[in-house]
Write a protein that binds this DNA or RNA. Structure first.
Length: 334
DNA sequence: TTATTGAACTTCCCAGGGAA
DNA sequence: TTCCCTGGGAAGTTCAATAA
């Protein structure tokens, strides 16, 4: 993110709230506290009236009478905004649908008819399909979680744990909601486990507000928490090294799967993919998806797990073959 | 009423990384 | 090589809450 974008985000964030701590801004922008102070200093130099309230319960704020004039948008930018609106509101159960619609209608009101027409023409020539965000299915759940995250208040939930096939009541301090790979997840401090854990929202069977305030664990950073996760679940950190054979090698090197990844290209067309990964469960599925075109070199434990998985698969297919032959014989008899 | 404490803003110096 | 940006560390200042 550029310094300019960060500064714009700071202004927008401060304008929408009454008092914001520098640390909160740093977390939101995923940057350092001192960078926030420097950006605020730059904004003040540019005559943006950012005031500070020192001491306990202090923070930064922009006086209510300050009005930051919206920039003039190009037809392309307007088209992109309406396009995003089409995707989010019409098809995907966007959780802030009502606010988004009013924001778009406000924007429309500021535009000339010709600008709206140009934008509509641009949208009609593009289509884009993404899977549903499915928030409507759990609208009330989302409302309570989102409310408790912003008010920093704990929740009591009944949560279904897939691995143990049991429902357990837990008290959670909700930190963050994240949508990844077709599912919503809640990152929260679990009072029962005494650590920050990830919960799938659709496995929450019931939810109650406790009204008890909480503080985010000191030193917790969402970016650090998720930095080496393959998708969403976490586990012990491990250095994973995989050899990919063509054509999978060409596919793998096209993408950035993890920020820590390194790829060494060999003369024979294979690649050596290495990365630091938090938890092996998800990367195991990813590697298995490439079948015979991937070979785990490290760690040995993952190599053995995949080998055992392949043996099990082989057993299924050979026994299915026997069943298939038996069934054929039965058919011939009839 | 005053001293203490804790939280948050403020400022400085230094080092590392990337772009020019 | 230089400059700019960013982050680490540390010390100082301010102010509200709390205890004595």
């Amino acid at each position: 993110m550029s310094k300019f974008s960060r500064m714009m985000d700071i202004v927008m964030y401060l304008q929408a709230r009454s008092l914001v701590k520098a640390q909160e801004l740093a977390d939101m922008l995923e940057t350092d506290l001192k960078t926030v102070y420097r950006d605020i200093e730059s904004l003040r130099t540019a005559n943006i009236p950012i005031e500070a309230k020192s001491g306990r319960y202090g923070g930064f704020y922009i006086p209510k009478d300050f009005y930051f004039k919206a920039p003039k948008l190009t037809p392309e930018e307007i088209a992109v905004l309406f396009f995003a609106g089409e995707i989010l509101v019409k098809k995907n159960g966007f959780m802030f649908e009502k606010d988004f619609k009013t924001a778009l209608s406000k924007l429309k009101n500021t535009l000339a008819k010709e600008e709206i027409n140009i934008s509509s023409d641009k949208i009609s020539s593009i289509s884009y399909e993404i899977e549903s965000l499915k928030t409507r299915l759990w609208e009330n759940l989302f409302y309570i979680i989102e409310k408790c995250i912003s008010e920093k208040k704990s929740i009591d939930v009944e949560y279904y744990t897939l691995s143990r096939d049991e429902v357990k009541r837990r008290t959670l301090d909700p930190y963050h909601l994240i949508y990844k790979n077709g599912a919503w997840y809640l990152i929260a401090f679990c009072h029962w486990r005494k650590e920050v854990k990830i919960f799938r929202v659709d496995r929450i069977k019931s939810i109650d507000e406790t009204g008890i305030p909480f503080k985010i664990k000191k030193g917790f950073s969402l970016r650090d928490y998720l930095k080496n996760s393959w998708q969403i679940t976490r586990g012990e950190e491990a250095d994973v090294v995989v050899r990919f054979f063509p054509p999978a090698s060409r596919l793998v090197k096209e993408m950035e799967w993890l920020p820590t990844q390194k790829i060494i290209e060999e003369k024979d067309g294979t690649i050596i993919f290495s990365a630091k990964v938090s938890g092996l469960m998800e990367i195991k599925r990813w590697i298995l998806g490439y079948g015979s075109q991937a070979e785990v070199l490290k760690p040995q434990s993952l190599r053995e797990e995949i080998s055992s998985e392949i043996k099990k698969m082989l057993k299924h297919y050979t026994s299915t073959g026997k069943r298939h032959k038996t069934a054929e014989k039965e058919d011939n008899k009839n």
